[in-house]
Design a protein around this nucleic acid. Structure first.
Length: 464
RNA sequence: GGCCCCAUCGUCUAGCGGCCUAGGACAUCUGGUUUUCAGCCAGAGAAUCUCCGGUUCGAAUCCGGAUGGGGUCACCA
């Protein structure tokens, strides 16, 4: 049975990289009829954001990455919120102390900081100096009785080779001398990520553990913990990191990391997922546009590449446009009204859909392109005050049009062009400007039909 | 800096020892369709496969080293 999990921290809007990983977790679990789990890792009380959890779940819903078990849905291996599992972590940490694989540490933050400064100034790598490692049992119990704040640290054996098996990269060897005596239980009684992740993945029966590459260097600690507990490890998969254009890890400063931003830009969730699926993975049949369902059918974790791809918005834009064009008018209409809100006349919006479908890449392109239909242009991109005669003539001819339909409107204007002995391009550009205010717009005849005869004549005669 | 990961067009990638004078997609440019833009169609340019050694009859593909990029070194995840 395959069981995968994504473990976001409730610190704000979800990171696009979290979705990237969740996509693989989800697809893999679904492919093998397993379960996909969302676990909330809220052990850092300093970074905790009150309503972040709800926002996270909403985001997953938006993408259609629906979980089988989670903090909101429950399941057989709960609770799925780490803050509700504190006694569990405590118990296992004490087991580790008993078996000699962990120890109490009473060092103050100040001492630790000073120690690191000294080590750094000596050009050494800052690591805990194991100061509290060899305290006697009596010393420890005395300090605990005296209520001295303490943490519990992992005791790393020296001179050992630790092998981390990664499903994407193969075996990665570490020397235990380079691994720090990691804090397992913090002074506030909360576990650190390292302890919690191992205990939870084991207890929740996770079979395939996928996470970002930035965790590789702490993996030896986790491997050791599995060994000390005598537990079988899940398979590890460390995905390549999404990058900024300068190749550094995708960050707010150089790129867009928040799911919220993508929503506000009017990217479609299915397009984002499709694009993400192209990062580090290639569809065996070469197709670049594929649905989540198709992805699930062919995805294998081992096919993931280990190179960190640069997140290229240009290609996402293209793909989003591709999805928009493939969508039915009805569906696109729903997406647009959903996106722009209530203030726009829905009947009007509906009629514009066929006009803009091939012209927008993102939902946020809609309003700038169609604004002129909802309100009269306030200015014109080109000076029109010296074209009064032309507009007078057009207005006269258009006024005679009986059935206000695109084709007939076009014919009338074509006739006017001939009467005025103007070039088509020149004439229609003037018309485009007077109607829309802009040099670039959706098809003119159709736009005029939607706008209505009265409104069109008003716009034209206002310049005569 | 120590440790670890990675390395094919600007970007995403194909490639698993001969089919590679390196293929596709995005982007760019050109032409066509056209009442603007977009779309669509056709085409072009774009990678001495980071470099240097080695293995081999033969290497983008295997091995070693160098270089470059990235990650990580917290009582954050």
């Amino acid at each position: 049975m395959v069981r995968t999990r994504i473990a976001p921290s409730p610190t704000g809007y979800p990171h696009i990289g979290t979705i990237y990983q969740a996509l693989f977790d989800y697809a893999f679990a679904k492919k093998y009829s397993g379960q996909f789990i969302i676990r909330i890792e809220d052990t850092d009380r300093n970074r905790f954001v009150e309503d972040a959890e709800g926002v996270i779940f909403k985001a997953f819903e938006w993408f259609g990455l629906t979980e089988d078990e989670s903090a909101r849905k429950g399941g057989d291996y709960g609770p799925y919120r780490q803050s509700e599992r504190l006694d569990l972590y405590q118990k296992y940490a004490l087991d580790l102390v008993d078996s000699g694989h962990a120890y109490y540490c009473f060092c103050t933050k100040e001492r630790l900081e000073d120690m690191r400064k000294v080590m750094q100034s000596e050009g050494r790598i800052p690591m805990y100096d194991k100061h509290c490692r060899n305290l006697s049992k009596d010393e420890v119990s005395k300090k605990i009785n005296d209520n001295i704040t303490h943490v519990i640290r992992l005791k790393i054996l020296e001179g050992r080779k630790i092998v981390v098996n990664d499903g994407i990269r193969g075996d990665i060897d570490f020397d235990s001398n380079g691994v720090d005596d990691q804090v397992l239980i913090k002074a506030d009684g909360f576990p650190t990520y390292h302890l919690a992740v191992v205990i939870d993945d084991h207890l929740m029966k996770i079979t395939h553990m996928l996470r970002g590459e930035e965790w590789i260097s702490s993996s030896p600690k986790h491997v050791l913990l599995y060994e000390f507990f005598g537990w079988e490890q899940p398979l590890f998969f460390h995905t390549a990191l999404l990058r900024n254009p300068d190749k550094s890890k995708l960050s707010k400063r150089h790129g867009h990391t928040s799911v919220k931003w993508y929503q506000e830009q009017g990217y479609l969730p299915e397009a984002i997922l499709n694009y993400l699926g192209l990062m580090g993975w290639t569809n065996p049949d070469g197709k670049e546009i594929f649905s989540l369902g198709e992805f699930i059918k062919v995805f294998e974790m081992k096919d993931l590449r280990s190179v960190g791809p640069i997140f290229d918005l240009k290609k996402l834009d293209w793909m989003n446009g591709e999805y928009i064009r493939q969508m039915s008018d009805e569906k696109l209409y729903n997406r647009i009204t959903n996106f722009i809100g209530e203030e726009y006349d829905k009947q009007l919006v509906k009629r514009t859909v066929p006009l803009i479908k091939e012209r927008i890449k993102k939902l946020s392109d809609y309003i700038p392109l169609t604004e002129f239909l909802f309100k009269r242009p306030e200015s014109y991109e080109v000076e029109l005050s010296d074209k009064k005669d032309i507009f007078k003539k057009v207005a006269e001819n258009l006024d005679r049009v009986g059935d206000w339909e695109a084709d007939i409107i076009g014919e009338s204007m074509l006739k006017t062009t001939q009467q005025l002995e103007m070039k088509n391009t020149e004439f229609f550009m003037l018309m485009r400007l007077v109607i829309t205010g802009k040099k670039i717009s959706p098809p003119l005849n159709e736009s005029m039909e939607i706008l209505g005869k009265g409104e069109c004549l008003k716009r034209i005669t206002s310049l005569t």
